[in-house]
Design a protein around this nucleic acid. Structure first.
Lengths: 347, 347
DNA sequence: AACAGGACTGCAATCGTTTGCCACAATTTG
DNA sequence: CAAATTGTGGCAAACGATTGCAGTCCTGTT
C-alpha cells in the first residue's frame, strides 16, 4: 500500500507483525525466558558470553520491554503524576517545565493531570490512577489537610506551595517576600494599600494575606482586602475597577495574572501606572517582564520548585525508608522592581 | 504515629493493606473472578441481583481496576502521548491546554513528552513508550516525512502543523494568513520587508517563508530573509539588531516569541514601534495582547488545534477501520491588528 | 414428558515480566 | 579425595485482569 512503509527502520526483513517479547528473544538465543530477563536487567547475574548472545538477539528482534507487564510484577511504573489545578495558568507552565526536564533526565515519564480547581477531581485522579504512577507532585492542592496527609501516607507525594504536617513539600516563601513588597511601597510613600485576593480556597492566597496584614502592622498601616477574584487575566478588569473605587494608591495582587489583567484594564480606563496607581504582582510569570508597564513583582523560583519537588520525590522512591531526608524545602523569593511601581501620588 | 492517618477515607475498618483486586471482590460476593469482571465491564451479561451484590462488594472493598493488568490483556491503556518540541514555548501550552481538556473529557490520560527539538529523542520516545499509550499527538515533529509516515503506519498518530502523506494531521493555515499579513504591511506603505526566520528544521518555518515569497511576488516586492533565529524571546535581541541593520521598515517574525523579544530589544535601543519600524508576529500566543506595544499578529486557533487533534485521534481509535474519516483538517487563521504596525516611515 | 434454547456463571488460558528456588557443573577448600 | 562453594541457567509461580468455551439450570415448545 504505502511505498514508504517498506523500509521502516523498526521492521527488519523478517518483520514480526507483533512486537518482540522476552519469549521471542529467548527462542532466538536458545535460553530460557528468565535468563533473558536477567541478562537485560541484572547483567551480572549471567555469563558474559550468554549475555552477549542474548543482547544481540534482542537488538535484532528489536525487543522493547512491555512497561505494563513490568509494572504488573514489579509494581513500579517509572511515571510520576503532576497535578496542577489549571493548565491554563502560566504559573504552572514553569512548574511543568521544571518537573518535565528533571523527570526526563531521571528516565521518568510525566503524567500531566489538570484538576480543574476541584478537590473531588483531585482526589479521584490521585486514587484512580494510583497504580499508574510511582509518585505524585501536587502543585496547588485543594484538598483538606486531613485528606492530603492521608493520601501522603498511602503514596509518595510532594506538595508544592502547601505546608501540611506529614506531607513533604516544596514551599516558595512568598509570605516573607510580601513584607518586602509592602516595604517597597511604603518607602515610595504609599499608605493606602489594597490586597487583591485570589480564590479563598487557595492556600497560598491566605498565606499571602496574613503575611501582608502582619507586615502592615509593623508599618502601622492597615491593608484593605479586595476580592476574591479568580486568578485569571480577565478577572483583572473587575479587580482594577474595585481598586480604583477603593481609593488606594497602590495594590498588591495575589498573582501576576491578575496584576497583568489589571494593568490592561487600567490602561483602558486611562489610569497611568505607576503615576496614578502602583501595582505589585506575585510570582514573576512569563509576561511579567514585557507587559506594559513591566510589572514589579515578587520573583519566585517556580521552575526550580518543580525541579526540587522531583528531586525530593525521586530520592524517597529510591531509598524508601530514609527518614533522614528533608521533608520540606523552602525556596526564597525576591522582589523585582520594574516599572509598575512609583512614588505615591500626593492626593 | 500519625493521628490523622486513622480515619483515612479509603481505608475502612477491616483495612486491607493491599488494594483490592477482582479476586477479593469475587471472594466477598461468592462468585467467580470472571463474573466480577463481567459485572463491572459488561453489566448486561450478568444477572441483576448478582450484579448488585458484586457492585456493593466492590464498593465496600474500594475496588479499583488495575490499569496495567488491564492494558496487558486488552492492549489498550487509555492514555495518549502528546509530544512537544519544547515545553518552554508558550505556543505549546495552548496546545497542551486543548489536548488536556479534551482528553480528560473523554476519560483519557495525557502523557506529556518533551522532545527537546531532537528527532532522535522524538523517535525513541515514540517507539520506546509505544505500548504505554493508545495513540500520539505530535505538535511539531522534527522527523523526516519518511520516518513519520512509517511511524504513523505502526500506531495511531495525529500531527499538528505538519502535512505529510499518510499522516493524519491538523494544519493551522498560517501560510494563507501570511499573505494577509504582508497585504496589511503593504497597505501601510511598506516596501522593504524582512522575514525573521525560525529554525530551518522547522516545517512551519519553511512554509511561512515560501508563502511570504509568493505573496511578495504578487505585490511586486521581494522579502528579505534574516536568520535563522532560535524561536525564543532571548533570540529577539539578535533578530532586532539584524532588522535594524538591514534597513527594512517592517518585519514579519516566524513567531510571537521572537517578535516579543524583538519588541523588548527595540525599546531598549530607543527604536519606536510602530513609528520607526513595524513588527508582525505569528500565532497570537499568551502575551501578544499585553506586550508593549500590543503585537499585530496572525491569530492561530492553537487550543482548538489541540482539541481537534484529540478528536481525530480518538475517532480513529474507536472505529479502527473507518477509512472515510477526514485524514487532515485545516484550521483558518486571521490577522489581528494591534499596535505594533503602522504607516511606513518616509525614509 | 422430553427437548431445544436462553440466561447465567464458572473454568482456564492468556497477556509479558519478574523472581524465589532449585539443579547442575565447575572450582575451592580442608 | 570428599565436601563445600560459587557461578549459571531453568522451572514455575506470581502480578490482575479479559475472554472463549463450556457447563448448569430454567423456561417455553411440541
Amino acid at each position: 500500500m504505502d511505498p514508504l512503509a517498506v523500509d521502516v527502520v523498526s521492521a527488519p526483513p523478517g518483520a514480526p507483525s507483533r512486537p518482540a517479547t522476552l519469549a521471542d528473544v529467548a527462542a532466538a538465543s536458545g535460553v530460557a525466558i528468565s535468563t533473558v530477563s536477567r541478562a537485560l536487567s541484572n547483567p551480572e547475574r549471567v555469563n558474559a558470553a550468554t549475555r552477549d548472545r542474548i543482547e544481540r538477539a534482542a537488538r535484532e528482534l528489536n525487543y522493547l520491554p512491555n512497561a505494563h507487564a513490568r509494572a504488573l510484577t514489579s509494581g513500579r511504573t517509572r511515571a510520576i503524576a503532576v497535578l496542577v489545578s489549571d493548565v491554563t495558568n502560566p504559573f504552572y507552565f514553569d512548574i511543568i517545565r521544571g518537573t518535565q526536564q528533571h523527570l526526563k533526565a531521571a528516565g521518568y515519564t510525566q503524567l500531566l493531570v489538570d484538576t480543574e480547581e476541584s478537590d473531588e477531581l483531585e482526589d479521584s485522579m490521585l486514587t484512580g490512577l494510583r497504580r499508574s504512577f510511582d509518585g505524585a507532585i501536587i502543585a496547588a492542592s485543594r484538598l483538606t489537610d486531613r485528606r492530603l496527609a492521608a493520601l501522603a501516607s498511602e503514596m509518595p507525594l510532594v506538595a508544592i506551595n502547601r505546608q501540611t504536617k506529614g506531607v513533604p513539600s516544596v514551599f516558595i516563601d512568598t509570605p516573607s517576600g510580601i513584607a518586602q513588597s509592602l516595604g517597597h511601597l511604603v518607602s515610595l510613600g504609599h499608605r493606602d494599600i489594597a490586597y487583591i485576593s485570589g480564590p479563598e480556597t487557595s492556600w497560598p492566597n491566605e498565606g499571602r494575606w496574613r503575611a501582608l496584614v502582619r507586615a502592615g502592622e509593623q508599618y502601622g498601616i492597615t491593608v484593605r482586602r479586595l476580592g476574591p477574584f479568580s486568578p485569571k487575566k480577565t478577572s483583572g478588569a473587575a479587580a482594577a475597577d474595585a481598586v480604583l473605587n477603593s481609593g488606594v494608591t497602590a495594590a498588591i495582587a495575589f498573582n501576576d495574572l491578575l496584576a497583568i489583567g489589571m494593568l490592561m484594564r487600567l490602561r483602558e480606563r486611562g489610569v497611568r501606572v505607576p503615576h496614578d496607581l502602583s501595582i505589585v504582582g506575585c510570582d514573576d510569570i512569563f509576561g511579567a517582564d514585557f507587559c506594559n508597564p513591566p510589572l514589579t513583582t515578587l520573583t519566585a523560583p517556580i521552575e526550580q520548585a518543580g525541579r526540587v519537588a522531583v528531586a525530593m520525590l525521586l530520592s524517597r522512591l529510591d531509598s524508601a525508608a530514609v527518614p533522614g531526608i528533608r521533608q520540606s524545602t523552602t525556596l526564597p523569593t525576591h522582589l523585582t522592581v520594574r516599572a509598575s511601581t512609583g512614588p505615591a501620588r500626593t492626593a
